[in-house]
Design a protein around this nucleic acid. Sequence first.
DNA 1: TTGTACGCGTTATCAT
DNA 2: ATGATAACGCGTACAA
Lengths: 337, 337
Amino acid sequence: MLTLKDIAKEAGVSVMTVSNVINGKKSKVSKQTIERVQKIIRDLHYTPNLNARSLAKHESRLIAVFVSSVVAQENVFKDPYVSDLFGEIETAIRQNGYYTIIQTVEDPQHAINLLQNWQADGAIFLSDQTLDNMKFYTEYCQCPLVFIDSTNTKKNDYLTIEIDDKKGGYIATKYLIENGHKKIGFAGFLDEKDSVIKERYKGYVKAMEEAGLKKFITQIQRGTSYEEGIKCGEEIAKRSVDVTAVFATADLFALGLVEGAKQNGLIVPESLSVVGFDNLSLCDFVSPRLTTISQDISHKGRVAVELLLKAIKKEEIECRRIVCDVELEEYQTVRKI
Amino acid sequence: MLTLKDIAKEAGVSVMTVSNVINGKKSKVSKQTIERVQKIIRDLHYTPNLNARSLAKHESRLIAVFVSSVVAQENVFKDPYVSDLFGEIETAIRQNGYYTIIQTVEDPQHAINLLQNWQADGAIFLSDQTLDNMKFYTEYCQCPLVFIDSTNTKKNDYLTIEIDDKKGGYIATKYLIENGHKKIGFAGFLDEKDSVIKERYKGYVKAMEEAGLKKFITQIQRGTSYEEGIKCGEEIAKRSVDVTAVFATADLFALGLVEGAKQNGLIVPESLSVVGFDNLSLCDFVSPRLTTISQDISHKGRVAVELLLKAIKKEEIECRRIVCDVELEEYQTVRKI
DNA sequence: TTGTACGCGTTATCAT
DNA sequence: ATGATAACGCGTACAA
């Protein structure tokens, strides 16, 4: 294993000179030695030992990314939203010269352990966290933390990235209204804990009330998985719910809904219009192409990393709670009536 | 920051005693002190500094996972195969008490740098590597490396995980034959470099020849993206290729093919049967459900990690080149004729 | 401009 | 069973 000492010996200088060359302290070394040392470093393929550097500098250039799994053994990366977002985050971390250490976490304590074990400079939490967990993490971690999609507080106590869920619900519903629909269903599970869905619901309600469509339908309460979507589509097709359009609060759920409806003779968009939420990349591979509310996942990932890096570098942070915009993506699952 | 020294002081023992307790050297410490020290460790929430440990032990418990991207800025995790597989690998690494450091790599040198920087104990390469790259990595890395899906050598020079592509092509084609098809197309790009597809092609040829179907069709040469699939389906629908069934060498490609055929009036499976390859998890969300050759991605990931760990622990490795089995998954895109 | 001494937190070795 | 010391590779502070 090659060390600073080896390079120093080869170059006939001290270890510190080499170290200074590597760390770009140009004022401390003459041009000639810089070039000579750099050549040797290249020729011998020397790479600094970052473990040792971390130890000495109390900073690791390591960023931990956590994604929570409820069930042990579960592969959370099967969720296209998670993997899309993670990919963007990894890219941003790398391009900023940091390293990504990733862990699926079942027990919050494990995440804290990892951060302390590796002296990580910061961490990003990919999945919705309870307020208790956010408190817990913040209490026991010295490094900055960024929470994505944890919308259980409106305060600026934490560094958070979220999207404008209410706007999403609003423009989705409004779009359906503009296309002539009056009986518009809201499909999603309105449990208190899942405030993301609740926000989307608020947007739905706002659009409906603005349009004077007071008798909106909210009976379609279901989880937002593909399977639940199928059941939901089935229910709608069997006319236990009388709607011409549905705002489905997640893409996979919406895709299931389309399928469930189809299986029961209700074709989308001819007989039923559907708007989803997320614009998952896998939507590109499904026909009919889902009309949906697009989260700019790429932007979200980059912003999360930028926010974290600002905190790590102790730069001033003008906004601790970033709300990303959403857009309607017009495709094939809404029909004008 | 809590260190061994702090714990030692608190417990009234030396650092080495604490270290021995942590590392479970029971023979070196009395039961009483073990328990006393352990209690203090728990109470104070001490966690060892793994950077320091790595430095002292010359082992990091860090495993690097590399996935290559051709284009910079590209989010490779959008590929469901990559993210599925990565998720399985991360799970296996974690459950074995190791840590996952992940990097998308454009330049092979970057991967080597990372391994040396962090003194990683081993690495897994997720994407197909050229023989040159495999040589390069092996030459410059001291730690064990496992290559997944790099099938450009049949020798045991490297630790590799692959699947039985030929068998996959064989059983896919045979299944179509058993369903009464005679005009069966092979759709995939038979470039020399992509030997995975070539292997699948060999299986196709074998099945066709066994059945005495000599006039098989191989004109459908395309890349295996979704977009290419659409074009391919279009071509088939327009009868420039006269087939009743197609073996499409990748799921996304197959899904595109189904869609392209449909857009041109050819319904799957009524008018055209299709078998894909991979059994991506996103297939669960697409209708009609693709009949396909299933790679057990979960198994593949676990096996890769197990193989790597054996190498890291210098255990005996009976098989350096592991070929995973494939299976036919019967679903909805093949019709009996 | 360059070099020396020391500390970072841990483990291995050798005493006690 | 327990402890003192050196070493791991690098950076900071200061001396030359």
